[in-house]
């Protein structure tokens, strides 16, 4: 496949903190981490998803003016960014593992209509749902 969505970004409050979270806690891998002056292009990848990158971007100059960056930081911190979904094979096992690693869970695993979902946040406030589909087998 050579066409498709390649990078989707989330805003984070601090690159290093986000990197530690997504790599050390969630088990993602760094795909690209390059700088141009103060600007840092940082993307990570799920280990089983080589064609997709999750970009970790800190809002600010030179891309955004300071006031806009401040607004975005507030929106991220109050958890108002759009939903993110992580597909997992075993939601309860992933929950136990991530929680033991210090991930901030907002919802314990719940089974609904054959799926199991749990909720967590990254340090910046981005909310993730972790969903295991089709457990009725």
């Amino acid at each position: 496949m050579s066409q498709g969505v390649q990078v989707v970004g989330v805003y984070v409050r601090d690159h290093d903190e986000a990197l530690a979270f997504y790599v050390d806690k969630l088990g993602f891998k760094v795909h690209t981490d390059v700088r141009n002056g103060d600007y840092r292009w940082l993307t990570v990848q799920h280990p089983e998803q080589p064609l997709f990158q999750l970009g970790l971007f800190v809002p600010g100059p030179p891309v955004l003016d300071a006031a806009t960056a401040e607004d975005i930081s507030a929106i991220v911190a109050k958890g108002a960014m759009p939903p993110l979904v992580l597909a997992v094979d075993d939601c309860r096992a992933a929950y136990e593992k991530l929680r033991a690693g210090g991930v901030e869970f907002t919802q314990e695993p719940i089974e609904r209509f054959g799926n199991i979902d749990a909720g967590f946040r990254d340090p910046s406030g981005n909310g993730w749902k972790m969903i295991q589909t089709g457990t009725q087998s």
């Binding site: 930081s73 507030a74 109050k78 958890g79 314990e108």
Partner: peptide
């Protein structure tokens, strides 16, 4: 105007209600 740090902590209270 509320700082992102304060908002993140208030979000924790909101998450607690949700939970």
């Amino acid at each position: 105007r509320q700082s992102p740090e304060l908002l993140r902590r208030l979000l924790r209270a909101k998450d607690s209600i949700d939970k």
